[in-house]
């Protein structure tokens, strides 16, 4: 809804077809903040209802993936972990990557997944991607706790040396959230019209994991491909995790400049595209 005055009378809102690209109603979004909270609550309460292990699933999944990766990439393929214990090395990557990939895939399918609600009632559609990012943040927090537990154990064993950089963690998480949401929003607008993209995103994200230093340190990338590493905005974030918590690799503030700029640009772009799509997607979905 846009606030406008006609020449004769005052109207509260105007429904029309032409919208400016930058017509994003933040005031309205703010009005619906309770809905955001309730959606997040719903996600959290309902996911594991009527499952036997309940919230334990939050732990089981990253733990099993870590063990699998440790065996396959660590022991069979013998990829370098730069001297850090394998378990904690992979767990650092997986915890962060899980959050990114879940947010990205869920946000990109947001229109299709919510078509039945979107088709029946209006509320600022941006609430839904925000819900996804925040709900997953809660899940991430639980998994992160597990990771911190392991970090504590290995520190105690004197195998890794976390440093004061860990204080920056919230900022890194926010960057992760913004980037995944931004890319997800852009993709979401395309998947509504071209369903083929859903297939592509599924394995695209999987492939992207191998292009990101999740299971290997970025330093192990051959010189010829370093430029690829530099293009990937996620590299700095994974490097950060290992540097701050495991004390391996190189890291300083300059590594965060590119991811920060990237996150702002991609999110802004995502919101613009999403905002344009939300007005007509019901006709194509």
């Amino acid at each position: 809804m846009s606030q406008k005055n006609t020449t004769v009378e005052h109207w509260d809102s105007v429904i029309e077809s032409k919208h400016s690209l930058f017509d994003i109603n933040l005031k309205e979004l703010w009005h619906y903040r309770d809905l955001l909270v309730l959606f997040v609550r719903r996600d959290f309460v309902t996911v594991y209802k009527q499952t036997i292990l309940g919230p334990l699933w939050f732990f089981i999944q990253p733990l099993l993936t870590t063990i699998t990766f440790t065996i396959i990439f660590g022991n069979v393929a013998q990829l370098s972990t730069e001297g850090a214990p394998k378990i904690i090395f992979y767990m650092a990557g997986i915890t962060l990557w899980n959050y990114f990939s879940t947010c990205l895939t869920t946000v990109s399918g947001v229109f299709n997944a919510n078509a039945s609600i979107f088709g029946k009632v209006y509320f600022p559609r941006l609430i839904m991607p925000l819900t996804i990012v925040i709900s997953n943040l809660m899940k991430f927090a639980v998994q992160f706790l597990l990771f911190v537990g392991f970090v504590g154990y290995f520190t105690f064993q004197n195998e890794i040396q976390p440093n004061s950089w860990i204080l920056l963690t919230p900022f890194i998480i926010i960057l992760m959230a913004l980037i995944s949401m931004g890319i997800g929003l852009i993709l979401s607008s395309m998947t509504t019209k071209y369903k083929d993209l859903n297939q592509l995103i599924g394995f695209g994200v999987q492939l992207f994991m191998y292009a990101t230093p999740v299971i290997y340190p970025s330093s192990s990338v051959p010189q010829d491909y370093q430029w690829l590493v530099e293009l990937n905005p996620l590299v700095g974030l994974f490097d950060y995790m290992r540097y701050a918590y495991l004390g391996i690799g190189d890291f300083d503030f300059s590594n965060l400049v590119y991811p920060s700029l990237f996150s702002i640009v991609i999110l802004a772009l995502g919101i613009l595209v999403f905002n344009k799509t939300q007005k007509t997607f019901m006709d194509t979905v």
């Binding site: 109207w11 809102s13 029309e16 029946k120 007005k279």
Partner: peptide, 28 residues
């Protein structure tokens, strides 16, 4: 659907005064 802003018109405008609540379905 257009009045409840679920979709937008191809052409034209609708001016409204006051809050609109739409019940295209119960229990959405």
């Amino acid at each position: 659907k257009i009045l409840s802003q679920v979709t937008q018109p191809t052409t034209g405008k609708i001016y409204t005064k006051g809050r609109i609540a739409s019940l295209l379905e119960v229990g959405t």
